[in-house]
Amino acid sequence: MTLAVSVARRTARQALQERRVRLILLRLILVAGFLLLWQVASLGTPAFILPSPARVWGAWRNLVETPSFWTDFGITFWRIIVGFSIAAVVGAVLGIVLGASRLLGDLFEPVLVIINTVSSSIWAIFALIWFGLSNWTTIFVVFMTAMPLILTNVWQGTRTVNREYVELAQTFRMSRTKVLTKIYLPTILPLFFAGARLAFGFGARVSIVAETLGASSGIGYRLRQAADLVQTDQVFAWTLTLVALMIALESIILKPLERHLFSWRERQSA
């Protein structure tokens, strides 16, 4: 019996390992195929339209060596973080307030709909008018994009709070603050996190748009500069940098954090 169990466990682990190896292999094939296609396509096209992978690699290495690379990189990252952080705090607080009061919820629901329908590019133009060429232009656009997403999710989260849990807390005469921290918060957290993740991705993307319009530094600004000078290899190099940044953030910070916070759910699905 125990032998059978251990054998079963070993084969299960083996199967898991095989699946992982297979996945890595598939990813490698995808990357290789993509590079090959890119190389072939670049052969018959002028470099200012589609530079070859080797040329982009060279441009990227030059780019990393220039001293302004890390300042541009840093300033964009900083603007995204500031805009996102304000959005997370404001969105979470407003979401809880609107969820807790039916009157306020009904009153402000249309405002949220309107904010959601305004495109980020329009916010960028408004920001340019109001803040000019400053950090706040980008931060404002990130905020206006990220905040409604977080607010909506937290608001929805307050509606999923189990009345039975609150009733149980009442039998213990639990204070309102404790009900909030011990029942509302854990219920809302997964939804907040999902919203925040979505909002961060959107915010990061629109920050580039905002920077191309209203900044004199940062990745977006450099992208436009390179495009104006028809340095297509540099445009590609900046794009690759951005993609790498987002993948790194996702796999180094967001995924591990989510796994840690919601371990009780993961075990549930297992």
């Binding site: 149980l168 807390a169 213990f172 005469r173 639990m174 204070s175 404790k178 011990k182």
Partner: peptide
Amino acid sequence: VGLGLEAF
């Protein structure tokens, strides 16, 4: 199980 004690 400790919920009530937290409440108190």
